[in-house]
Amino acid sequence: MGVQDDPRPSGGLNGLYGVQFSGQSLYSDDEAVKTSIMDSSTSEPLEGVGSSRRLLIQRLWQHRPPCLKPIHCSLSCDKHVGETIANVVTSLPFIVLGLQTPRKNLNTSLYANSLIGVGIASSLYHTSRGELRKYLRWADYTMIATSTLCLSRALRDENPKFLMAASTLLLPFQPLMVSAVHTGIMEVSFAKRASIEPELKTAHNLHKMSSLLGGALFIADDVFPQTSYLHAAWHLAAALGVGTCNKMLE
């Protein structure tokens, strides 16, 4: 009987030091299947990733904090032509005050220009109608907040930079909050200066009365929206208060 050579290679050498015989794969059948699946999955485009990211951003924006949401306000202060005219006419004093405000430096110049902006924004809002009206109302509130921010900076150049930066960022979203904070800063500064500068006491007393009257009219305008000319009266009280503040810049 002759010895027949086994065509299969010896299993003892297979795999030693990386030896591989032709016709045999380094990987098992299972590994080959896994590799082909991975290759096919990675080669396919990742559909829907962009839309998922957009959806995530939309959800985050919808659940943003209240301080980053736009204000909601009443739009019923121009019920007839007569009230609209009164509101526009009583907006003009802010432009006059802005033109008369001393411009000693950059901060006072910015404040003066912001007062002019208040008068213009208010006039545009009260003459507007339709869908545009709510956007101009937002611009009106934002311009008022800008003027209070500029005034506190003009009176106190040492205001914390973080406060000023945060107020600037919040202006488009929470103008009423920015107005309240910087009006408070202005009131404290006015009271301190009036206590040490006798020539400011009369202006400060007038300012306190106009501020109380303006606050009462502002609340009444919101509580009694059907009462005509309350908003125009608030304009006049606010203009008087602004005029007394300008005494500190002289």
Rank of each mutant, 00 (worst) to 15 (best):
T84Y: 00
I95F: 12
K69E: 11
S152L: 04
S123G: 14
R103I: 02
S52K: 15
H80Q: 11
H80Y: 10
L155K: 01
T101W: 02
L151D: 02
L97V: 03
S114C: 10
I116A: 12
L151V: 02
S147Q: 04
L56V: 13
V89R: 07
F162M: 03
D78G: 09
R129N: 08
P93S: 09
C77D: 15
T146F: 01
K104R: 14
R59P: 01
G82C: 08
S76E: 15
Q58P: 01
T148G: 01
E158K: 05
I120R: 03
S74W: 03
P160Y: 00
A139G: 07
S76M: 12
L115C: 10
P102W: 05
W138N: 10
S52R: 15
P102Y: 07
K161Y: 00
T90N: 04
C73W: 05
L115Y: 07
L56F: 12
M143K: 02
N87T: 05
R53Q: 10
A154G: 02
Y135E: 03
S114I: 06
K134V: 08
S74R: 10
T101L: 07
I95T: 09
L151Y: 08
I57Q: 15
L136N: 03
L68W: 15
L75V: 10
Q100C: 14
I144L: 13
F162E: 01
K161W: 03
L99Q: 10
C67H: 09
H63A: 14
Q62M: 14
P70Q: 09
N113R: 14
L136I: 05
W138T: 12
N107E: 13
Q100S: 11
T146E: 01
P70W: 10
H63E: 13
A145P: 03
E83C: 06
Y135R: 05
L155S: 00
R54L: 15
Q62Y: 05
I116W: 04
V81G: 06
L99S: 09
L55Y: 04
S122H: 12
S128H: 03
I85D: 03
K104D: 04
I57F: 14
G117Q: 06
D157R: 02
S147F: 02
V81L: 15
S122V: 08
L106G: 07
Q100W: 11
L115M: 14
R133D: 02
L163R: 00
W138Q: 14
A154S: 09
T142F: 01
T101R: 05
G119I: 10
N159W: 00
G98W: 03
A86Q: 08
W61G: 06
F94S: 02
K79T: 10
A121Q: 07
R129E: 05
P66N: 13
N105D: 15
S152G: 11
N87I: 06
A86G: 04
L92E: 03
N113M: 13
K79Y: 07
R53W: 14
F162G: 00
D157P: 00
M143P: 01
R133A: 07
R103N: 04
S123H: 06
